[in-house]
Amino acid sequence: MSDIRFTKDHEWVLVDGDTATIGISDYAQEQLGDVVFVELPDIGKTLEQGDEAAVVESVKAASEVYAPVSGEVIEVNEELEAAPGRVNEDATGEGWFVKLKLTDEDELDDLMDEAAYAKYIKELD
């Protein structure tokens, strides 16, 4: 069973212990188109839920990626600097952006599970 959670702004978060891995959804990467650049935060930066965590750029536009939960940045996916297209190829896997040390597990309750998110994006189209 998957514990992945989604925001209405199309970020995902997957929690393992007190580590929260975040990225953008497959729906989001498809809407963006080819990702050509990803700007990642500095390690050690503290993010509140909803803060700008990263920036993702397609040929057309730049978009902010918001932190789905609060926490301190403990790791970033440096592979994306050389291979930003990984976000398109595997948005919810190898295309992850940032790992946070989770500060408030209760924030996960605000987010959608996979089934709820699937329903949510279906209503958007």
Binding site: D9, I24, A28, V55, V56, K60, A61, S63, V65, Y66
Partner: peptide, 8 residues
Amino acid sequence: MGESSAAA
């Protein structure tokens, strides 16, 4: 996610 700058 939110769009911060887009083409024309």
